[in-house]
Structure formats: structure tokens, C-alpha cells
């Protein structure tokens, strides 16, 4: 039972890391109706900008500020060059544009900062907390716990921002209908710049935590793959959904990785480990069949 809880807690904490990436997707989708395929590439660009600035001699706090500015500039350029010309285009056109953007960032970011994998020390050591290990015999990482705290704070701030600020309400209005929002005087371009800037900030937080955990390298773009089932499960428009979805995906994939292969081996023979690569997608697919809008997503109703 002790081992079960260790796997469960480890999974929940891993899930929070997936949620951090999923949050960036949710923000842009919520505010502009665009599924931003480039979110993983943005995580990479943000983390690479931090280590790039640090290599040039900037202290970490300055590197983070400079990296945030890079993300804001990226947001402004994306709006000016890509999105502004695509107002009122079909969602699939916008989605295709973000695919192009993803490949562009994946190619341009290493050109800017180099493609060498680097470490990133943010002062959080990824080691077990001795008290929990000694008392309960369970490994709980100091790093993962801190990441969970950061994610919780981020979600709280974003939820309050969307719910209680004028800008937040404007973002939601734009997401519902571009033309209607423009007709009541909401400046679409400004809103898009703002939301891409906020998504850039979320990408920066996610990139720093993932980068500190696994190194800053191209593979950070793969973090987006972990966020997709989280989004399907939690809903594309819900900030709390991204967190709950992450927790469910993280815990279930870890439990599945530990407990399913022995059962499968008993029935089918062979080695069935490594299932956490596809298991979250199967789980998300099942959810999709039962609840297409996700756990917390808004139900889409068309008038006939």
C-alpha cells in the first residue's frame, strides 16, 4: 500500500508539470479560439532565452525578465505578422498557421541561442524530502512539491484575472465571437497581443521548471505531447480543468505503468512496459467519447 501511495503521489506531482504546459494552450484557446500548436515550441524558446541570457552573463533574475521580454516581442510579432491577417478565418486556418509557427520557432530558437543541451539551476534540488521519507517511507520530491505550489499560484492568479478584471472579460468576449467583440469596441489586436504575452509568461514558467528538471534542450517541445490528453480531459477552455486533467493523467499513467504490464504479461506474454506513452491518449479518447467538451469545458451548442 505504501508503494501504491508513492506511485500515486509521484503521478499527481508529475501531472502538475503537464498542467503547466496545458495552461498555455487553454489561455490562448480561451481568449482567441485558436488551438496554439506552437505552445511546446514557446516553452522551448522561453527556457532557451533564460539560459542564453545567463550564458551571456546575466544573473538569473535579469535573464528571466529578458526572456519574458523575448516572449512579449514574440507575441507582438505573432499578432502583427500572422494573426492580424487571419481575423475571421476558420479555426482550422488559424490552427494551420500555428503549426507553421511551431516549426519556425523550433528552427529559429536554436539559431538564436544555439542547440547545445544545457542545465538550468533555479535553486530547487530534485531530491526526496527527508522527513516524509523517514516517517512514511515515501519519496516525495522537494522540486515537484515546489512546482505544484507554483502551478497552484499561477492558476489562482489566472482564474481571478479572467473572472474579475475588465481585460479578462474582454478576452472571454473575443473568444466567443471575434466580430461581436469588435462591434462593441473591444480592440482585438491588443487583446491578442496581451493573451499571447500571458501565454508566453506561462510558457516561461513551464520552460524553467521543465528545463531545470530535464535540461534545456529541443526535447522541451515534446512537453506539449503530454499536455494534449490533459486538455482533452480537462476541457480546452478551463484553467481549473487543465489542473484537474493534469492530476488525472499524471496519476493514471503512473499507476498504469506500474500495475498494468504485469497483468498484460500474464495474459499475452512479452514485455509490456513503457505504456505511459500511449495510455493517457487512450484515457483521453474514452473521455472524449463520453464527454466531448472535457470535464470542465463549455458545452458547444449551435442554433439551428
Amino acid at each position: 500500500m505504501q508503494f501504491f501511495f508513492e506511485v500515486l503521489i509521484g503521478g499527481l506531482l508529475s501531472g502538475i508539470m503537464y498542467s503547466l504546459v496545458a495552461l498555455g494552450f487553454v489561455l490562448i484557446f480561451k481568449a482567441s479560439g485558436v488551438f496554439n500548436f506552437a505552445q511546446g515550441a514557446m516553452v522551448y524558446l522561453a527556457a532557451l532565452s533564460v539560459v542564453g541570457c545567463m550564458e551571456k552573463g546575466a544573473p538569473i533574475w535579469l535573464a528571466v525578465i529578458l526572456a519574458f521580454l523575448v516572449m512579449v516581442v514574440f507575441g507582438v510579432l505573432t499578432e502583427r505578422i500572422v494573426l492580424r491577417r487571419m481575423v475571421n478565418q476558420s479555426p482550422i486556418s488559424l490552427f494551420m498557421a500555428t503549426i507553421g509557427l511551431a516549426f519556425f520557432v523550433q528552427g529559429a530558437a536554436p539559431l538564436l541561442w544555439g542547440n547545445q543541451p544545457r542545465g538550468l539551476d533555479i535553486g530547487l534540488v530534485d531530491e526526496p524530502i527527508p522527513y516524509i521519507l523517514d516517517t512514511f517511507g515515501i519519496v516525495v520530491s522537494r522540486f515537484d512539491l515546489a512546482a505544484a505550489g507554483i502551478a497552484a499560484a499561477l492558476v489562482l492568479v489566472l482564474a481571478l484575472f479572467f473572472q474579475y478584471t475588465r481585460v479578462g472579460r474582454a478576452l472571454r468576449a473575443v473568444a466567443d465571437d471575434h466580430q461581436a467583440a469588435m462591434s462593441i469596441g473591444i480592440p482585438l489586436q491588443h487583446i491578442w497581443v496581451m493573451v499571447w504575452g500571458v501565454a508566453g509568461f506561462v510558457a516561461l514558467v513551464a520552460g524553467m521548471l521543465w528545463g531545470a528538471r530535464n535540461g534545456v534542450q529541443f526535447a522541451l517541445t515534446f512537453a506539449a505531447l503530454k499536455a494534449l490528453p490533459v486538455l482533452i480531459l480537462g476541457g480546452f477552455t478551463s484553467v481549473p480543468g487543465a489542473i484537474v486533467g493534469g492530476l488525472i493523467i499524471g496519476a493514471s499513467e503512473k499507476l498504469a505503468e506500474i500495475y498494468l504490464p504485469p497483468l498484460m504479461q500474464g495474459v499475452l506474454e512479452g514485455n509490456f512496459g513503457g505504456i505511459e506513452g500511449w495510455f493517457p491518449y487512450v484515457l483521453a479518447l474514452v473521455f472524449l467519447l463520453v464527454r466531448p467538451e472535457g470535464l470542465f469545458g463549455e458545452k458547444h451548442i449551435d442554433r439551428v
Partner: peptide, 13 residues
Amino acid sequence: VAHPGNEQGAQWQ
């Protein structure tokens, strides 16, 4: 470990 291997919590547990 499933590709790309950026998550190995279960394996190391």
C-alpha cells in the same frame, strides 16, 4: 521507457 523518455517517475519507483 516510452519515447522520448522525459518522464521516468514510474520506472524509477
